[in-house]
């Protein structure tokens, strides 16, 4: 077909092309690195809480309440004399755990349902989408609060309530992506290659559609932390005296004029955590969307 010289030339071109078109390495991605640093630091703080926290976060010291920052209590104490820094550190553990876990369950459940509905279509898809529409008709917070009220307060019921409400988002996102992906020729090619529907869905479509759900999941963690904060504010959250940023903001706001740091610093932590997770989501979306050349 080609002369040896032409073939050699074409191959040299290919080799050069393979080099020049290689993808930017992940560590050169600014947003991703910022996200990893911030979220990583928070996770580290949460994991090392027993070592980092100078005091027991629930130990009261009624002789030393509402203390201003000092050498002993860097961020002062709250109205029960508990060390705010220690509560902040332990709070990271509770909030991050609840945030991640509350996302994990609906992520898995919603994605699997959405993928199956989108891929096979038919009555299954119709029924699922009607359910999704019903869920979307109610505001997220209202539903969560009602469900927590029904299930009773506590960490487990928060997971359950959030999962019951937010799986629909994942189902909807993944279904939409699957609808697009299943029309791609590479899916037809996989069918012609004799592959089963299950294999195509998991191995060929899955990796191409999950990135959107993962990116959404990052922002959803932020949402869930906010939800926990809100629930804590309404007295439906994590039961006191467990240290948790939401209840700390709630407790501290009484003293905003005298001891501003009591509410502001946990609030700042929420902001930092949100920022870190958003960066992580942005970075992941860069990393996970394959460079579509055209």
């Amino acid at each position: 077909m080609m002369s040896p010289a032409e073939l050699l030339n074409a191959r040299l071109q290919q080799r050069r092309a393979l080099r020049s078109r290689s993808i930017k390495p992940w560590y050169r991605n600014g947003a991703l690195m910022a996200g990893i640093v911030i979220v990583g630091a928070l996770v580290l703080i949460a994991v090392l809480a027993p070592l980092l926290a100078p005091y027991d976060p629930i130990a009261q010291d009624l002789r030393n309440t509402l203390a201003s920052p000092s050498a002993e209590h860097w961020l002062g104490t709250d109205k029960f004399g508990r060390d705010i820094l220690s509560r902040l550190i332990w709070g990271a553990q509770v909030d991050l755990r609840v945030g991640f876990l509350a996302v994990l369950i609906p992520f898995v459940f919603g994605s699997v349902l959405g993928a199956i509905a989108g891929y096979f279509g038919g009555w299954l898809d119709t029924i699922l989408m009607r359910i999704v529409d019903v869920f979307f008709a109610f505001p997220f917070y209202v539903m969560v609060i009602v469900l927590v009220f029904i299930f009773g307060s506590g960490e487990a019921s928060i997971y359950l309530a959030i999962a019951a409400v937010s799986w629909v988002s994942y189902a909807k996102i993944v279904r939409g992506e699957v609808l697009v992906a299943k029309k791609q020729d590479y899916v037809t090619a996989a069918r012609l290659g004799g592959m089963s529907h299950g294999r195509i869905l998991v191995k060929h479509i899955g990796p191409n559609v999950l990135s959107q759900a993962i990116i959404y999941g990052m922002s959803d963690i932020v949402m869930d932390i906010m939800a926990i904060v809100t629930l804590g504010y309404l007295g439906l959250g994590i039961a006191p005296p467990t240290a948790e940023w939401g209840s700390m903001i709630n407790d501290g706001q009484e003293f905003i004029t005298t001891q501003w740091q009591q509410a502001t610093i946990p609030g700042l932590m929420v902001v930092v955590a949100s920022l870190g997770l958003s960066f992580l989501g942005d970075g992941l979306s860069d990393l996970l969307s394959p460079e579509r050349r055209k």
Partner: peptide, 11 residues
């Protein structure tokens, strides 16, 4: 055929 392909605009 013309061997190879057109250069990338950037390089």
């Amino acid at each position: 055929p013309i061997p190879g392909f057109p250069p990338n605009v950037a390089s």
